[in-house]
């Protein structure tokens, strides 16, 4: 029986889930290989078994184990050398994957994740604490400062992910402030460097990353204003202090903004680059996220 169809108990850190790959159905002329890829809450580790090392997936969080077939990557032939190097033997029957078996045959991939049970009810994908922004993730940010070349922002949340309890307390306006902040008097710790309570990760949207067309004609002033809530995508982890973000997609850009630099009412997008305040009728320019 394949590992992906098994029933698992509640996962806890260190629980062995399955080997990194196993042999599936075997017909006369082909051998199916099932590969397991560690996703959220799962890590690949080396285990010693009867003298030789094998790779296995272990849980790193508490929750229930989920297997999801990766349709995109199926049928990619795996290099034969890799298979022989790993020398992985199946836990059950100790069958070795040899070169000729693995050569250019069909492969199925499963992404293994550990999910919090509460998250399933909340109807959000992969919802879990501690999701840091990484390349490609969509984040919600607030503009803190603008200049001709860039807009500085603070990252409020990764879209569809929960925040750690103590993240950005000041900026998000929720949560109880920690007395002594979990940093305080501590010397020589990371906390010393980021001593301020409720600090958030910061990011930069450069003028050339604001939109996909007419990149050189972008004016930051006509795209963002301080205080705007912007939906953006992380393009790189950036440097020590800033993530690099982009809004060069239709569904990215300003989602909430107030008129007159925050003094007026909430505005609504009427087209790709204009927002209007319904009470006064005043219009302002923004790089709006897909308004329809």
């Amino acid at each position: 029986m394949s590992f992906y169809s098994k029933d698992y108990p509640i996962a806890y850190p260190g629980l062995l889930i399955c080997p990194a790959f196993e042999l599936g159905e075997k017909t006369t002329d082909s051998q199916e290989i099932i590969r397991y890829i560690p996703g959220h809450g799962v890590a690949e580790q080396n285990y010693e078994l009867n003298g030789h090392t094998m790779k296995a997936l272990t849980a790193t969080l508490i929750g229930s184990i989920d297997f999801e077939e990766d349709e995109m990557a199926t049928q990619t032939p795996i290099p034969t050398t890799e298979a022989s190097n790993d020398g992985a033997s199946k836990e059950g029957d100790g069958q070795e994957i040899s070169d000729n078996e693995a050569g250019g045959k069909g492969e199925r991939r499963y992404i293994v994740t550990v999910k919090d049970q509460n998250a399933l009810e909340r109807n959000v994908n992969e919802d879990f604490a501690n999701n840091l922004p990484r390349e490609g993730s969509i984040v919600l940010v607030r503009v803190t400062r603008i200049s001709l070349q860039r807009a500085n922002v603070e990252i409020l949340a990764v879209e569809n992910k929960t925040l750690p309890k103590d993240s950005g307390v000041g900026s998000n306006g929720t949560g109880v402030t920690a007395a002594g902040g979990g940093s305080g008097a501590a010397t020589f710790s990371v906390s010393q460097a980021s001593s301020d309570l409720g600090e958030t990760f910061r990011g930069i949207i450069s003028a050339r990353d604001v939109r996909a067309t007419d990149r050189d004609k972008v004016k930051i002033m006509e795209s963002f204003r301080p205080g705007d809530i912007v939906r953006a995508q992380v393009i790189s982890l950036g440097d020590g202090s800033n993530y690099h973000l982009s809004t060069a997609k239709n569904d990215l850009g300003v989602v909430f903004a107030r008129a007159f630099n925050g003094a007026g009412g909430l505005m609504y997008a009427i087209d790709w680059q204009t927002m209007v305040a319904p009470s006064t009728g005043s219009m302002e320019l923004r790089k709006c996220a897909k308004p329809f």
């Binding site: 501690n130 840091l132 750690p164 103590d166 993240s167 920690a178 902040g181 979990g182 940093s183 501590a186 020589f188 710790s189 990371v190 906390s191 460097a193 980021s194 600090e199 958030t200 990760f201 910061r202 982890l237 950036g238 440097d239 020590g240 202090s241």
Partner: peptide, 22 residues
């Protein structure tokens, strides 16, 4: 025991988290 973070660290770029125990 209380655990705070992961929280942004300032300064040089770190590809990994830095752990401190007090």
């Amino acid at each position: 025991t209380s655990v705070y973070g992961p929280r942004p660290s300032r300064g040089a770029f770190n590809a990994k988290a830095t752990l401190s125990v007090q």
